[in-house]
Amino acid sequence: MGQIVAGVLAPHPPHLVYAENPPQNEPRSECGWEVLRWGYESLRESLSQIDYDVLVVQSPHWRTYVGTHFLGVPELKSKSVDPIFPNLFRYNYDLKVEVPLAEQICSRAAELGLVTKMMRNPDFRVDYGTIVSTHMLQPGWEKPIVGISSIGAASYYGMDVMQELMQKLGQATKEVIEASDLKVVLVASHSLSHRHFVKEAEVPEDMSREHIEHHGQYLWDMKMIELMKAGDSKALFDIIPDFTEQTVGETESGGLSWMLSAMDFPTVPAKVHAYGTVIGTGNAIVEWRPKEWRPSKLRPQTSVPSKHEDVSGSKA
């Protein structure tokens, strides 16, 4: 019987790959964003302890508006150039797709009422969000992936509709994986708060220029992390619309909502491997295990300092 063996929040700033200087990426860096990169090291170490076959990645940078799409070509090879940071990310990828699993999730989601589509064009260029998160989780690209697009329902209708769609997509993902013989890691590829600077430092990896864009969004990020560490994923799910509204959160892509739903809202505390900022956005590297995860020794706090709550405009 198949199983979801872990779920991870794995943000995709191309800066992290740039700072790692892997052979696949053309630009070279001196350093940068070490706390987050060490967080990914820690996560890789943790995942190496478990047996898994496939990474299922949902990415905000494969944005579709008519339905949810799935990669449906067994092998995809090309160069990904980040349209926003082409100076940092020009990455030659060569990846394998677990197409049968993708097809089954696509079909089951359609049965549950979602509009879905398989992507069969061999010239298709995989989005940099999928590539960055997957690279940071497995730089050797040993495991195949399932790539899922992010439907723009949050913009079209609102976060409440998006939440409902992601619950159904999560249900489809869970049912199909459990009916398979695969062990799967789910990957929500996005940051938390997403207000960012509109100017880049002359030396992009100049860490004296790196900080959160706004204190209000930091408070919101900490509130989210607090709920993750408390293992209260239902409260986390419920707060996502407010969080997204207040921080222009990349949670609008639905990745975290989908993953929590697919994992049946895990109650074990999540392991936060790192939190840090990239051009002002808040990024957390977090791991959920469905069972037998050792609880954090730190007792989670229960509230955001009240004197700052009005900064972000809404109480959680």
Binding site: R63, T64, H69, N121, D123, F124, R125
Partner: peptide
């Protein structure tokens, strides 16, 4: 380059 639209990939390259 060869463009494939991220939404309308089925229409062609």
């Amino acid at each position: 380059w060869t463009l494939v639209d991220e939404e309308w990939h089925d229409l062609g390259s």
